[in-house]
Design a protein around this nucleic acid. Structure first.
Lengths: 144, 144
DNA sequence: TCTTGACCTTCGACTAACTCTAAGGTTTAG
DNA sequence: CTAAACCTTAGAGTTAGTCGAAGGTCAAGA
């Protein structure tokens, strides 16, 4: 099948598949005479595998390693378990941070509404963000 | 004060401050004779403002707008409230997604541990990620 | 006075994980 | 036969910074 259908089946975008291939995460599939990528069902299994790994927030570099081991029939469980432990921790603190952020937003929106009521014309110099009295949630790292 | 102290006070990194300035989010501050950036207390207030806005996950482009309005003494509350509404929604669904992910990870780690117990040598072809029977958390967008 | 170390300057390159654009070739339905 | 929908490539753009190189400045100590 061609890349569009494979993408559909695997739950990825065609452009992402090409990107993974270029990055060396996926092997290049067969090609039709006209040069189109031609995926088998096993290929699609691998695509799904990669999507699952990415949905677990495993970085592409790690996914590449895991895919290599997998294709050699070796056990990437060690790698996966290591990554999972790391991710579990990261996600835990991320949820906590986001919860704080959510609380802040709710509180600030209420404040904003009250401010808007007081000054319907609104010449406020942004009391909302200006307000010192809210705890700053620690900045999240891109890869927390 | 110089950039390092200002950064310290505002809770930013000096490199980030230079970056914001280059991106046009912040006005260039005074300079000493030797060319060092020289921040006043009001400048630091603005730095804090920006950090707060960013900690609310407001994109830099929006922060730039808000800062412009703020410096003209106009009310960016409208912008802020719009952004906040958007962010609140995004964060809500993000927390939900992460919660699912966290559950998966816990479940999968247990599975992994059991698998490891069964095959201490570990010739598994990664039953962990291979496992079809876990719900895929929808992929998070970079700016959800 | 000299030197050492901490601080500052700029610019350009790099990061992750794609997404988008341009310019073109192929396939399929009507 | 043609138009739409699909595919190809290379290369640039995205976000929000970080890092490195090469060099200038400042304060303290010998």
């Amino acid at each position: 099948m061609r890349i569009g259908e494979a993408a559909e089946e695997a739950g990825l975008e065609a452009t992402a598949i090409r990107f993974y291939e270029k990055q060396g995460v996926l092997p290049g599939p067969e090609r039709t005479d006209s040069g189109y990528r031609d995926y088998s069902d096993e290929d699609v299994d691998l695509l799904r595998f990669v999507r699952r790994a990415r949905s677990l927030e495993i970085p592409l570099d790690d996914v590449r390693q895991i895919v290599e081991l997998r294709s050699r029939g070796q056990a990437p469980c060690e790698v996966v378990r290591r990554v999972m432990a790391r991710e579990a921790k990261a996600i835990e603190s991320r949820i906590a941070e986001l919860q704080v952020l959510q609380d802040e937003l709710t509180r600030l929106r209420d404040l904003a509404d009250r401010v808007a009521d007081d000054w319907p014309g609104g010449d406020c110099v942004c009391h909302i963000v200006e307000a010192e009295n809210f705890t700053d949630a620690k900045r999240r790292k891109v890869r927390a």
